[in-house]
Amino acid sequence: MDKSEIIEAIKRLAKENGDKGPGSALVQNRTGMRKADWYPRHWLRWGDALLEAGYAPNPFQTAFSDERLIESYVDLARKLQRLPLSGELRRRASDDKAFPNHTAFARFGGKEKLLDAVSRYCEAHADHEDVVALLGHRGLGTTSRADRETRVATGFVYLMKSGRHHKIGRTVSVGSRERQLAIKIPIPPTTIHAIETDDPSGVEAYWHGRFAEKRGEGEWFDLSADDVKAFKRWKRIV
């Protein structure tokens, strides 16, 4: 489906739904639309598609920032007095509509990387010692020798552009990553800039946090020219 067909489908289904913007799942089921038809070529968020069609986005279709996800995870860990299981994330999202869907946590790249992000967040906030204790070996001052050795090797935090959207991620080889993405998305990406660093996860987290309000799904962002200039000012962080 092209962009105009998707917008027409939204309008048609909205009329059948009390003039409320339909969710992407409903449009997919009724029209055969695929996620690749709209993301990330035309919109980073389904809510943006609804806005362009003239409807207010569902508040629960708004992307959560990394910080909001971590805070939600921390809150649940405190209630359970231990680290949540994946099933408990699902249950909490089902019971509490303000809690992020369990799939949102996948953006961190797996449980270990999620816990690493939670650990960094808690170490930066003085009132989170209780959660640091739950994290155990990921707590303050207990980074393993293997982790320290891994951080010595440099990697890259890249900014790539596909269509009108930008992707911020990390890799050990920018060229290889660009080729991988070219196979997965409709519009092959172009590398705008790459920052060499001995702490790729930390630098990536900084830029994800800085542009959190402009984040769509995954690592895709709707950046301005000034945002791109700011990213390009960083050359090498070692």
Rank of each mutant, 00 (worst) to 15 (best):
5 E>S: 01
135 L>Q: 09
70 I>V: 04
158 Y>F: 14
141 G>F: 11
159 L>M: 11
32 G>R: 01
145 R>V: 15
44 L>V: 15
119 S>T: 09
40 P>G: 11
196 E>F: 11
82 R>N: 07
69 L>V: 05
6 I>T: 09
20 K>Y: 10
78 R>H: 02
224 S>A: 15
196 E>M: 14
109 G>P: 15
151 R>T: 04
170 R>K: 07
234 W>E: 00
104 A>I: 13
149 E>A: 06
11 K>Q: 13
203 V>R: 04
104 A>F: 09
124 A>G: 10
35 K>N: 01
223 L>F: 03
53 A>Y: 00
231 F>P: 02
152 V>D: 01
137 H>C: 05
165 H>D: 04
135 L>E: 07
176 S>W: 11
228 V>Y: 13
236 R>D: 02
212 A>H: 07
74 V>P: 06
122 C>L: 01
112 E>G: 11
233 R>Y: 02
151 R>S: 05
6 I>Y: 04
234 W>A: 04
121 Y>D: 12
52 E>I: 07
129 E>F: 03
208 H>C: 09
235 K>G: 00
235 K>W: 04
36 A>G: 01
51 L>D: 03
130 D>C: 01
129 E>V: 00
16 E>I: 09
2 D>L: 06
103 T>Y: 02
21 G>L: 11
104 A>E: 12
19 D>K: 12
39 Y>I: 15
52 E>A: 07
180 Q>C: 11
210 R>Y: 08
99 F>M: 08
179 R>G: 05
92 R>S: 07
3 K>S: 01
48 D>P: 07
113 K>V: 12
68 R>S: 10
9 A>T: 07
217 E>K: 09
54 G>H: 00
38 W>R: 02
3 K>P: 06
216 G>T: 15
159 L>P: 08
232 K>E: 14
77 A>R: 01
98 A>V: 05
80 L>E: 02
101 N>D: 14
145 R>K: 14
202 G>D: 04
183 I>A: 12
26 L>G: 08
107 R>Y: 06
110 G>E: 04
18 G>T: 11
159 L>T: 12
224 S>W: 10
57 P>T: 06
118 V>R: 01
234 W>C: 09
147 D>S: 15
228 V>I: 13
115 L>Q: 05
34 R>F: 06
99 F>C: 13
174 V>S: 03
23 G>C: 10
71 E>R: 14
125 H>P: 08
185 I>R: 02
234 W>V: 08
183 I>E: 13
108 F>T: 13
46 W>A: 09
178 E>G: 12
185 I>C: 02
89 L>H: 10
71 E>T: 14
161 K>I: 07
192 I>K: 00
127 D>I: 05
166 H>L: 12
28 Q>E: 06
45 R>N: 08
121 Y>M: 11
81 Q>M: 09
63 A>Y: 02
78 R>L: 14
121 Y>E: 10
132 V>W: 05
48 D>Q: 13
219 E>M: 04
97 K>Q: 03
204 E>G: 08
200 P>N: 07
88 E>L: 09
235 K>F: 03
194 A>M: 04
32 G>F: 00
85 L>H: 06
147 D>W: 07
59 P>K: 03
161 K>R: 14
30 R>Y: 03
158 Y>P: 12
176 S>A: 15
103 T>I: 11
174 V>Q: 00
156 F>T: 06
3 K>W: 03
154 T>R: 06
69 L>M: 01
158 Y>C: 08
